[in-house]
Structures are given as C-alpha cells and as structure tokens.
Design a binder for these strands. Structure first.
Lengths: 242, 242
DNA sequence: TTATCAAACTTGTTTAAACGAGTTATTCTA
DNA sequence: TAGAATAACTCGTTTAAACAAGTTTGATAA
C-alpha cells in the first residue's frame, strides 16, 4: 500500500493536540494554512480533520475556524469505545501489566440457542473459548468468544492465551474491520463471582458484539464481562444535521 | 441552507436497507451505478455511503463492492449510542409513552466540587436540574443536568418537564453539535433507590457527558442513571487503518 | 480440462477548482 | 462617534478527473 497521505497528517495534528501544542479552546491553523504546511490540497487536510472530529477532538465552526475540544483523560478508563481495540492493545496503551488465562477451549456446533445469542447459523462449526483477563493480579474481565472455524483455522489454546487478534491479523493475514457492540449492566452470575475478583460488587458491565472481517463474514461473537470499577467506556458523537 | 445533496441520498439508501430491499449480506449497487441513479458525482455518493458505514450499516470491500451488514434491531434497546438523541426523541422512535418529573430546579454557582465533576469553571452560574423519566408508569432514568446560564437564558421548570433540547434548538436557535460521554456501571445510591423503580436491582448504568454548542462552548453536563434492564447501548466501530 | 493472463470491473486516494455561506475586521459614511 | 457596508477571511458542498490497487470474469494457451 502506498501509504496514504492524510494519515500522517491526521497523526501529526493529533499529536499536536495530545502534547498540548493546541489546548482545549484553542483554534487550529486554518485549512488553507495546513495545505501549505503539509503540501497537499484542502480535501486531504479536511479528511484528516474530519477523523479527529469524529473522535471528539475537534469542533469545526462554519466561518470561524476549527476549535480543539479535547481534554486529556484522567487515565481511569482502560478502554475507549468508538474504536476497536484488543485487550492487549488497550492495556499496553495504559501501561499496565496484563495476563490471560484460558478457562475453556473446545469445538462446538451452533445450535438454536447459540444462533439466538450470536447470530451464527445453526450447524456452523465454532471454537468456544472462555478466558479471564488479569490486570496485575486482579481478574477484571471474563471473556466468552465464539469463532467461526472456517475463518480461523489453526486456533489453539496457546494462541488464545496471548493474542488471538495478533494471530488473525499477523499469521492469517485477516483484516478486522467493523464491529457492532451492545453495552449493558448485568447482575453478576455465579460464574462471574467465581472467576472475577468482583470484591463487593455483584454486577458487571457487559459488552457483547459481532466482529466482521474484510470479506464481510461475521467470524466472531464475543461477550466481555467487566468488573465495574476502574473500567469505563468513552464515546463521542456528532449530531446529525437535518 | 441550500439543502445538501448527499443527505437525501444517504436517507434513501438507509431506507432501502431498513425496509429490506437490500438485506444482510447483499451487495449494494456500485458507486458508479448510484452516480447515474442520483445524478451526481462519485464523491457525493461516497459521502452518503461513508455515513452509513460509520453507523454500522455497510462494509465496503476494496475491489468487490459494498456489503450490507445491517440487521434489524430486536427493539429491546431504547437508546443507540453513537448518536446524540434526547430522551423524547429516543422514546418516540421506539413508540413508547413517556413522561418527565422535575425533582429539583435551582440556580447554583460552580464550586470546586462541581468543577471537578463537570469541567465548568469555578464561579460560573449554572442551572442545576434533577429529573426522573418514566416509560409508561415505571421510573427508568434519573437525570442530573448542569446548564450554563449564560448560554441557556430563560430556562424554566416547565421547559425542563417537556424537552430542554426542543427549547434550546427551537426557541434559542442553538445548535448542538458534539458530545463526549462516559459509560459506567455503578452501585445504586440511596437516591437512586428512592427515585427509580429498580425492582430487585441494586446497580445502575450511568452515562455522563459534556455537550458543546456550535460556538464551541460547553454548555451542559449531564449524568443519566439508567435502570439496567430493558436499556442498552449500541455502538458500531470501524477499525482504524495503520 | 486446467492453468495463466489480461481485461473489466470494483473501491481507495488525491488533485484542482469553483461556488456557497457564516464570521470577523476594516473601511467608509452619516 | 456610531453604524452600515464591504472586504477578507473562515469552513461546507459539489464537480470532474486521474490514477492506484484489489477482485472477478472470461479469453487464451498449454
């Protein structure tokens, strides 16, 4: 791939914001100034800016300029919703030590119950995996995964213990593109209490979702049950024009 | 405003998907076909398609086409995260009868505690509002709002009881653009138990966030505490290219 | 029949230009 | 001095064209 042009521009401006060169409330240089600085057209600049807008970093104002509305995180949030990030990626970003324990790893055939829950067709061959994720010594996430065997050949417990995504993207050359997730608060099950260090909590934050690869095949269904403290999801939205 | 051209195209294709003309797994007509159908350039078509992609409706595949990955909702979710929707809008969309009761309505000055929680500067004049939202006869949401008085003049309890956003957008001509929200699961407080019909639950799903108007002024901070059942948040994400 | 190659698609990126429309600052006028 | 008109900015939308790069299909050659 011939390395896109807008991507380094996006990254450069993002860094300028995160390092405080442009602070909350400041206006960025105008689009035309950026075309000179980056030696590209306004379209390319606008593409980079629109990415940052959708991430909640910027607020463009017609006729005035583009304002920075980003405020640094307080660091309490492990995950940022609005992007796709694996457990390992998120942990690395926040600089915390993490480990994974594989509790269950088996092959199943999707029955009606699985179909209802995950959306996989009845009769499909699936890997069923349960994992517990630790941050430091504390069990904070209980993951249940269903992977479509035909799309994820060679999956093994040893891979599940490190990073399945690294395997899929690296070894298999798969591209993960889109996911759709549902976030709910739920009563902790007996299994949650058994596997997670919930302390005094008796509920979890559940994130369930389907993941598609670049060929439009839904190859994964995952439910992650999170210990409620120390974990939160951040989302930013832009209101649709009418 | 000269009514944008991509917007009706976006709406048209969205409708075709939601009404099942194009089903889950189908490929849409190519971009070039759409340029003929809508009498516009490829750029304009692509703009409409990219909106639907970011909403999780579509999965474009380089060299192959654009696939539909939308599946109709099961209707259990009142809200969709990833957009900005008021309580009234969301309820209307799901066709349920709702009412609002204003519990507290007063003017306050932001102190250090408020500043830490909301991000408003110390000394700012604010409206402080507490509201309980009912779906049918059940109290399902406990809302705490802070509004910047200078940006929301004339706010009154009677307005808070109907729709504050309708007042802001309609009467004041304000444009709401961007919001940034944090989703967490929390232990139900005594006040939650007093005001909400939690039934057997002792926890809530909290959504807290800042809202900006079109002039880049943060004019609202809101925390909504939801009864956990029957409410969920849906989010779709597209993985960032590297 | 099978394998290979090329043509004809598909979406992805970038340029260039023009016009619209909102905001701000300046200049001119009363 | 105060106010109105204007010029010079800002971002928003759309067109047109070209090329890159991935996929599918069908023709061609072994």
């Amino acid at each position: 791939m011939p390395q896109s042009k807008y991507e380094p521009i996006y990254r450069s401006i993002k860094e300028d914001i995160e390092t405080g060169i442009y602070k909350y409330g400041d206006f960025l240089p105008s689009e035309n100034e950026y075309t000179v600085r980056f030696e590209c057209t306004r379209n390319t600049v606008r593409r980079a800016l629109s990415l940052l807008t959708s991430e909640g970093y910027l607020l463009p104002q017609h006729g005035r300029g583009v304002q920075v509305i980003y405020r640094p995180d307080d660091g309490r949030s492990l995950f940022t919703i609005g992007g796709i990030e694996s457990f390992a990626e998120a942990a690395e970003r926040s600089g915390r030590k993490t480990t994974t324990k594989v509790v269950v790893f088996k092959q199943i055939k999707a029955d009606e119950k699985v179909n209802l829950r995950t959306g996989f067709d009845i009769g499909e061959d699936l890997y069923y995996i349960e994992r517990v994720r630790y941050v430091g010594k504390r069990a904070v996430i209980f993951d249940t995964n269903y992977f479509l065997m035909s799309e994820t050949p060679g999956l093994q417990p040893s891979i599940a213990a490190s990073s399945i995504y690294r395997y899929l993207e690296g070894t298999l050359g798969m591209t993960i593109t889109t996911s759709r997730r549902r976030v709910t608060a739920q009563q902790a099950s007996e299994r949650d209490k058994e596997l997670l260090d919930l302390n005094h909590f008796d509920f979890v934050l559940s994130v369930a979702g389907q993941v598609f690869n670049s060929r439009g095949v839904m190859f994964e269904y995952t439910e992650s049950r999170h210990v409620p403290d120390q974990v939160c999801f951040i989302e930013s939205a832009v209101r649709q024009k009418v």
